[in-house]
């Protein structure tokens, strides 16, 4: 089936990117192992979908593909939440940095506040 070919090709491409990122030093070994398991696991599920039947039976879901979709959605929600928290943290750090620079610069430039403007 062509859909299997497309998916597996994409997963292998994603896998190759993960290896390249590891070589660049952008991700560490633990992240590489996680990504390898993720993409290889996804390829296995696409090639032999009947394997997911066992998972579906254990979880009490009707079809294997449904079980995969439910788990994926839950995992995506969790990752989005983590990214949201991370971004908010970075934004607050950025604000702190901008504030510190602004206050430091204000102390260094001679201000007119000590002598109110003459009009």
């Amino acid at each position: 089936m062509i859909i299997k070919l497309l998916f597996v090709t994409f997963f292998l491409f994603a896998l190759s990117r993960a290896v390249l990122r590891f070589r660049d030093g952008n991700i560490n070994g633990r992240e590489l192992v996680f990504l390898c398991l993720l993409w290889i696991g996804a390829s296995v599920v696409v090639l032999w979908p009947q394997l997911t039947m066992h998972l579906a039976r254990v979880l009490g879901v009707g079809r294997g593909s449904d079980a995969i979709v439910y788990i994926t959605v839950a995992a995506l929600c969790y990752f989005i939440f983590r990214i949201y928290i991370r971004i908010r943290h970075i934004e607050q750090q950025l604000t702190g940095l901008v504030r510190k620079l602004a206050l430091r610069e204000a102390e260094q430039t001679p201000s007119r506040e000590e002598s109110p403007p003459s009009r």
Partner: peptide, 23 residues
Amino acid sequence: GATVIQHLINRGQGAALRTGMDY
């Protein structure tokens, strides 16, 4: 004639207020 404090990048009104209050 105002004292001016400059944020290098836009951080929002809440952030600007807190900076002014700290000053």
